[in-house]
Structure formats: structure tokens, C-alpha cells
Design a protein around this nucleic acid. Structure first.
Lengths: 226, 226
DNA sequence: ATTATTCTAAATGGATTCAATATACAAAAT
DNA sequence: ATTTTGTATATTGAATCCATTTAGAATAAT
């Protein structure tokens, strides 16, 4: 083991943790549409000063979760079905481009990592508990795919999009685990064959399929609510 | 050289002005690659406290002009030729998508505005002085084109990309004014005919052509330097 | 009763202050 | 001479403080 690096948590500054927490709260749906997020109030709730809250809001504005109006503060704008559509379609567009640019630069190690993740995913039991693990692996798989892309900005843009998606839960994913797994294997295949065009295509299809499943799921949930 | 002080006039929103100023300074190339931007130092130079500087840096990080490392501060990463390639290619991708989504929602007023801008551009004398005006009109034209796009995030993303481009000036543009004008008219035509596919195509071609011209220009400039 | 207007409390933007941490430099040891 | 250790300084992260602006309530006017 050559890696004694501190975990993200340890390295994190307060603002980072606050940002994560606020994002979670907003995505969890604890705000009404258009509700104001008062800095003082949340500073107290989280047991910090207003300062890290302010920096967090600046970040969350970029992610599209709040809108900051000068001298009026942050207004929460929870995501709608249309937002989900937008996020996934943008992801398809950007990640497609990114993996295509990335493929020529992927190393043997990258490919091994991808294979490992694929194996781990296959071995996962299909139960509620393992879904979190699946999501982690899935995110990792995608990130490695475009890690070779030398463009600097696109990474940030994609990251931002990922962060704006609420962690939609178990029941949804379990239904489509097989499908996802098939697609991941296909991607891996194209990576090995150095087929960047095909890879791009299947990545985009995969993301758009996920979008469709998610939207169906959300719409269904909404109906059940009423 | 020694005075970066903000003009007393438009202190309306300090953070905004500071962000604009710092962006300008960085794009102007006043930093070495990898040079640190010390908050205190620039607070003094601009005659403000560190606070607005910090908020500005957070913004500029998103735009890719600085990299913020926890407890180490902001490191300036000036843009390279590859960055220009990335920015324009991403613009082509995103603006293409945006105008396609936008077209069905463009109103009569929008179209009139586009026509007006086209006229104004045509009437512009080709001289150094009018180039700034041309750039303003050009930016406006593009923004109106995708104004009808109802997606929320894509606007911010595109805006961010625009801001990351140094205002490369006169000599370059004047050489290609005619070409640009032709393309703008073609876009307008497709707008009127409600041909979203064709519109998308010409927008993308236009942006990519601009990229090529810009890169040729930059490379040439660099050679002259040496 | 409804609309304007004034006043008060609350919230934000920005400055200042303090503490934690990284960097730079000097001294010591191999 | 080069590396290591220790210390002083510079710089960031976060808390607190202050001034200006906004929101809302109460009052006055039509």
C-alpha cells in the first residue's frame, strides 16, 4: 500500500461539508418551491457561522439548486421533472464527448480498474443494502471512462451535473440492474477494442435510458402521492 | 501599472465588479502560469476587503481561470490554445443544442430583434473603433437565438464559457467580418423557416469556424513573439 | 374597506478580527 | 553539500461586527 492519503472527509474544509449538507437537504426536498434560505437560520441549525453558509450558497447557485438575488438572498429552486430531463440530456451530450476524447489516453491500469468494477457489480446481491454500493461503483465506472479526457472544463461541468441529481433510491435501480450491467460490459468491450465512436454512442444511450427510467419512476411516485 | 483601483462610480454590487476586474486581469495575461493569487494583496490593490475577493475567486474557479486548493489558496491557470479549442467546441455542442430547443419558442419580437442586429452589423464600418460594437452585437445575436430554450442550466453553462474567452481583438475579427455576417443571415433565414435542425448545424459550424480562425491567429501571434 | 405611507425588525453585503495552517527560511545533523 | 528539523511569518478559513437595504407590520389617508 503506497497510499496514506487522508480521506476526503478529513481534508474537507468546513465550507465543503456545509455545501454537501445543504445540497443534501435541498435535494431531499425539505424546501418549498421558491422558499428563501435564510443564512442566519441555517448557520444556527448547522452550528456554524454565516460565512461557510455564504460560500456554500455560491456553489449551489452554480449547480442550479438556488438562485441568489442581490441583497435579497438565496431562493431555493427544487428540481422538477423537466430538470431531470435537462440534466441527463446534458450528461449524455457532455459525457459522450468526454469519453470519446478520453479513450485514446486510457491506460492499462484504467482498463483493469474498469474490469474490477464490473466484476464487483456482477457479484452484488440484489438487495436494498447493496444499492448504495452499486451507486458508488457506477459513479466510479463512469468517471474512469472519461478520466483520460484532457479537457479541463468538461470535468467540472459533468461533476456539477452529477451533483444536481437527487439520490433516487433503491426500488428504481434494482429493476434495471441487469440492463445497466449489460451496457457497462458493452462499454468495456468497446474500450478494449478502441472503438471511440461506438463507445460514445453506447454511453449516450445508457444515460438516456437511465433518464427515461427515472422519469417514469418519478411520474409514478407523484401520481401515488395524490 | 500600479493602480488597479475600482472606479468609484459603479460600486453598486461589489462582488460582481471585483469578479469582472479579476477576470479581466487574468485574461489579460498578467499572471504567470501557476502563480498564486494572494487575497490580501489584491484586496489592497482593488481597495476592498478580502471578502468580495473570495467570492470572486469561487466564481472564477467555476469558469476555469483559477484552481482553489484548500488552505493553499487560488492558483491562476491561464488559458492555452487547447483551452480555446475546448471552450469553442463545448460552445458548439451546447449552443447547438440550445438553439434547437429554443427555436419553437422564439416570438415575433425575438425575430425582429435578430433582424435589427443583423442590419446594424451590416452598417458597421470596418474599422478598429467599431469592433467592440460588433462584438457586443454578435454576443447579443447569439444570446437571443437560444433565449427560447427553457432549460435552466444550459444558459449558465454557456454564459460561463463565454466569460472564459479572452477578448481577442480587432485585427482578427475584421478579417472575417463578411464570413460571420453571411452565417448570421443564414441563421436568421433558418429561424424564419423554422428549420431547427439546419439552424443547429449552421450555429455549430459558425462557432467551430470562429475557433479555427482564433487558433490560427493565436498561434501566429505566438510565433511573432519569439 | 382598501390603498399609501411610515416605521421597525430582520437579513444581507462587506469589513474587521482571530485562529489554524502552510510556506519560507535558518540552523543543525548526517 | 545535502537533508532534516525547528521556528517565524504569511496566508487562508472562519467568527464576529457593522452599515445598508429589504420585508413586513402598523398607521394614516382616501
Amino acid at each position: 500500500m503506497d497510499n496514506y492519503r487522508l480521506s476526503e472527509q478529513d481534508r474537507a474544509t468546513l465550507q465543503y461539508r456545509v455545501t454537501t449538507k445543504l445540497r443534501e437537504v435541498i435535494l431531499r426536498g425539505e424546501f418549498e418551491d421558491g422558499e428563501r434560505l435564510v443564512q442566519e437560520e441555517w448557520a444556527e441549525k448547522l452550528g456554524v457561522s454565516r460565512m461557510p453558509i455564504r460560500e456554500a450558497l455560491k456553489q449551489l447557485e452554480v449547480e442550479g439548486l438556488v438562485r441568489i438575488e442581490p441583497r435579497r438572498g438565496a431562493i431555493v429552486t427544487p428540481i422538477s421533472v423537466e430538470d431531470i430531463e435537462e440534466i441527463y440530456q446534458l450528461r449524455a451530450l457532455l459525457e459522450g464527448e468526454a469519453v470519446e476524447k478520453s479513450l485514446p489516453n486510457l491506460s492499462k491500469e484504467h482498463i483493469e480498474d474498469l474490469e474490477n468494477i464490473c466484476e464487483q457489480m456482477k457479484d452484488l446481491e440484489v438487495n436494498e443494502h447493496s444499492v448504495a454500493e452499486f451507486m458508488r461503483l457506477n459513479e466510479n465506472f463512469h468517471k474512469i471512462l472519461y478520466e483520460g479526457c484532457t479537457w479541463r472544463r468538461i470535468h467540472g461541468l459533468i461533476e456539477t451535473l452529477w451533483k444536481g441529481i437527487p439520490p433516487y433510491t433503491p426500488s428504481l435501480l434494482t429493476n434495471h440492474l441487469d440492463e445497466s450491467h449489460q451496457e457497462h460490459r458493452l462499454m468495456l468491450e468497446y474500450v478494449k477494442q478502441n472503438e471511440s465512436e461506438k463507445l460514445k454512442e453506447v454511453v449516450q444511450k445508457h444515460i438516456l435510458r437511465t433518464r427515461d427510467n427515472l422519469i417514469k419512476y418519478v411520474v409514478k411516485s407523484k401520481k401515488q402521492e395524490s
